[in-house]
């Protein structure tokens, strides 16, 4: 059995790729899928922080690629879900330490280990690291913020997904593209300060697979090393749960995309 490879990418930095990778991988594990999440951002490793396993990294992705450690030694088991594993990036190397053959070997190794999903957390940009992260993908989650520069970069990435991946080069069915809108603030959309879901869908010509509302829970969760999807009380966590369900083929309506209506007391007293 081969693992489904999902790349989380965006072109632009700081839009929420790592947050999304962590929540997506955790969500898949919560749905009972054996999942690994790999940090491709060699030199600027962050995923282990958000997954809360930074003190348990002994061997990393680059070690495996270079044959200095086995896959088993390097995979870090998540403390919450025992079918979730993290492969951390190396902080002391750079992206040139990764090779196409090495990455392929690691992904094949994960398939052999019985993993059902492998989430690849891509670095920003369109250079080597990002290219390697997307090359072997079956699915792509393109993370976009509701602002023009992020949308433009996502458009570029969508073009690369259609041409610079193994599926494209071998002429197989194309990489399935999912657009995930993050840091969405309905109030600012309503007054025209942010692009709306419809604007973004129209410009990029594909539908969104989820909309994650801007929320302080995301920052708090990240700082505590907890993927926000675990926080079932938060809107962002619920929106990520919906997104994972949709990627797994379930149909769910979009939530949290309208300005919340104020309650009676709030209307009277302001708030």
């Amino acid at each position: 059995m081969t693992a489904e490879i999902i790349v989380v990418t965006s072109g632009k930095g700081g839009v929420g790729k790592t947050t999304t990778s962590a929540s997506l991988a955790t969500g898949l594990a919560m749905a009972g899928k054996k999942t690994a999440v790999i940090d491709f951002d060699v030199g600027l490793r962050n995923l282990d922080l958000i997954m809360g396993c930074e003190r348990r990294v002994v061997y990393d992705f680059v070690n495996v690629v270079h044959g200095e450690a086995t896959l088993k030694q390097s995979l870090i088991k998540d403390k919450r879900y025992d079918n979730l594993y993290v492969l951390a990036a190396s902080q002391t190397r750079d992206k040139d330490a990764l090779t196409m053959e090495g990455v392929e070997k690691v992904l094949d190794g994960l398939s052999e280990e019985g993993f059902e999903y492998v989430v690849c957390d891509s670095p920003a940009g369109i250079e080597k690291g990002a290219h390697l992260a997307m090359y072997f993908a079956d699915h792509a989650v393109v993370v976009v913020n509701p602002e023009v520069s992020s949308v433009r970069d996502s458009d570029r990435i969508l073009g690369l997904l259609a041409s610079k991946t193994r599926r494209a080069e071998k002429g197989e069915s194309p990489v399935t593209q999912h657009l995930l809108l993050t840091r969405y603030n309905p109030a600012r959309v309503a007054i025209g300060e942010m692009l709306s879901v419809k604007d973004v869908e129209e410009i990029l010509g594909i539908e969104v697979v989820g909309v994650i509302p801007e929320s302080e829970n995301v920052l708090t969760a990240s700082n505590n090393g907890i993927p926000v999807i675990v926080d079932a009380a938060s809107q962002a966590g619920q929106a990520y749960s919906d997104t994972v369900a949709r990627i797994l083929g379930e149909e769910r309506p979009l939530r949290f995309i309208d300005v919340p209506k104020k309650g009676f007391l709030q209307r009277v007293f302001g708030g």
Binding site: R152, D155, R156, L158, G159, L160, A162, I203, G205
Partner: peptide, 26 residues
Amino acid sequence: GSVRSGQQVYARERDLIITGAVANGA
């Protein structure tokens, strides 16, 4: 389909028909 940002399509010595969008930067 769409021509994405950063892509270029050239029709040599003929007309070009695009059934899709041409993005910013394409």
